[in-house]
């Protein structure tokens, strides 16, 4: 199953990057969403998908799923939630100020002279 997951994750990353390279800001943010999904699944996969029961202590169970990656993912999920929320509001404010969501129109001048 891990091998399948590796490909799924790769696919998610590919889609995420493709979206990030587009010019619509909303798509870019959606891309970051896919990116974090990919990353979270990857952490889980890297910990190993074996383990027959959830990491909640129960009598008689010895084969727990690796709890450490799960804890890491939880932290990562929360953080990416914060970032996504922030990013969304930023996009929303940019629409208001710059009146576009096209990245190509947000070039900004590198020159001042």
């Amino acid at each position: 199953m891990e091998i399948v997951m590796c490909f799924v994750i790769g696919f998610l990353f590919m889609a995420a990057v493709y979206l990030m390279l587009s010019k619509s800001l909303l798509r870019i943010i959606i891309g970051t969403g896919l990116l974090s999904h990919g990353a979270h699944l990857l952490i889980l996969t890297m910990g190993g998908l074996g383990g027959s029961s959830p990491p909640v202590v129960a009598p008689g169970v010895t084969d727990y799923a690796d709890p450490l990656p799960q804890a890491l993912i939880l932290t990562a999920i929360v953080i990416s939630f914060g970032v996504t929320a922030f990013f969304l509001v930023l996009a929303y404010r940019s629409y208001q100020e710059l009146e576009t969501d096209n990245m190509n129109l947000m070039r900004g001048t590198e020159d001042h002279d």
């Binding site: 994750i9 790769g10 995420a16 493709y18 390279l21 890297m46």
Partner: peptide, 23 residues
Amino acid sequence: RLGNALVAFGVGAMVTIVALSAH
């Protein structure tokens, strides 16, 4: 856009290859 797609594919491939090897 082919250019974007190639780059995206590259990133995906990289993630998969390293993931497989690391695992």
